[in-house]
């Protein structure tokens, strides 16, 4: 019997991991448990069962109110250890990555972070992840008895909710003071866009000369009923668009039916975010741009000339 333990600091991520767990648990002869920590933990149990958890371990201890990776790792370690869990799956969020490494150390487990997929080969878990800055895709297995794997958001599809139920156990943990202290939390400029769910995506890159030219892209997006995404320079260096719109390795991984890439060179750190699109179109004035190696349709041309014409044409269909 394999016991799989799941934790993600963002519930959506946990639901994805649970959905995967539910699919594979029979072939692995596994039980799927999830951990809920911090304020409001208990109240979330029903949703977790609905996505496939057999068992929930929860704690609302005061020490778990803020997320401190060292404290949370300790909490997960105690839960995994006393309940015989040998595989722990963690959502590879910014917090999850740190948590996974710390937990693995405590469990003396092997650890793989940022997995993009897990495949079953008999009873083995073959983990797929991008390596060398996203240039290659590697398949790896953990040789240790205990395993900690952090899985990137959107790697597994969330299943439909069912009326699931199971056992919710409150755990009592012995926790230390964290070694760091959060002194302030600053909200981010609200942009509730969810690029991962977009059916059509228009991405803009450094081919755009200035922020004032964004309407060029907005008009096309509107015509296509698309969301707007961008490359890192636009969201980080220049901050013309919000961080929620960055597509790629450190941004969002999208799976639209149609993805239109405008003035984007096609660096791998960006294209991993669009690789799963059904159809990819690019407009770039440089015909040798790497983006043209991964498109279905490409137009060699200046976005300032092509995009308005494309918008006009699309309005007529």
């Amino acid at each position: 019997m394999t016991n799989i333990l799941i934790y993600c600091d963002i519930d959506e991520g946990a639901f994805e991991l649970l959905s995967w767990g539910k699919k594979v648990k029979d072939s692995l002869h596994a039980t799927i448990s999830a951990v809920l920590l911090g304020k409001g933990a208990k109240g979330k149990a029903a949703d977790y069962f609905a996505y496939g958890a057999d068992k929930i371990y929860w704690s609302e201890q005061a020490a778990l109110t803020d997320f401190y990776a060292d404290v949370y790792a300790d909490a997960l370690f105690q839960i995994a250890n006393t309940n015989d869990h040998d595989i722990v799956l963690i959502g590879s969020t910014r917090r999850g990555k740190e948590l996974a490494a710390r937990l693995a150390q405590k469990m003396q487990a092997g650890c793989i972070t940022d997995a993009g997929g897990i495949e079953l080969k008999g009873q083995d878990l073959v983990v797929h992840r991008y390596t060398l800055g996203g240039n290659t895709l590697s398949s790896e297995v953990l040789k240790t008895a205990k395993k900690v794997i952090s899985v990137l958001p959107k790697s597994f599809e969330k299943s439909v909710k069912t009326a699931g139920q199971g056992e919710a156990l409150e755990v009592s943990l012995t926790l230390k003071e964290p070694k760091t202290k959060i002194v302030e939390k600053k909200g981010k400029a609200g942009d509730a866009v969810s690029l991962e769910d977009a059916q059509t995506l228009v991405c803009i890159g450094r081919g755009l000369n200035k922020k004032e030219d964004l309407p060029l892209v907005e008009t096309l997006a509107k015509t296509l009923n698309a969301e707007i995404g961008c490359t890192r320079p636009l969201s980080h260096e220049w901050q013309w668009l919000s961080e929620q719109r960055e597509v790629g390795l450190s941004g969002k991984k999208c799976k639209p039916r149609l993805c239109v890439e405008l003035g984007i060179s096609g660096q791998i750190q960006h294209t991993v975010g669009i690789r799963d699109s059904k159809v990819i179109v690019a407009v770039n004035k440089d015909k040798t741009a790497p983006i043209f190696e991964m498109v279905d349709y490409g137009i060699v041309g200046d976005i300032y000339e092509v995009v308005p014409k494309l918008s006009e044409k699309l309005k007529t269909v």
Binding site: V141, I280, E293, D296, V306
Partner: peptide
């Protein structure tokens, strides 16, 4: 603790139809 089974460039299977030249016709 990990064993790398393979590490390869991802395969791109795209149509790669590239239009050059007359913009209106291409659109």
């Amino acid at each position: 603790e990990t064993e790398v089974l393979s590490n390869l460039a991802p395969v791109e299977q795209r149509k790669k139809i590239i239009y050059e030249g007359k913009i209106d016709e291409n659109i």
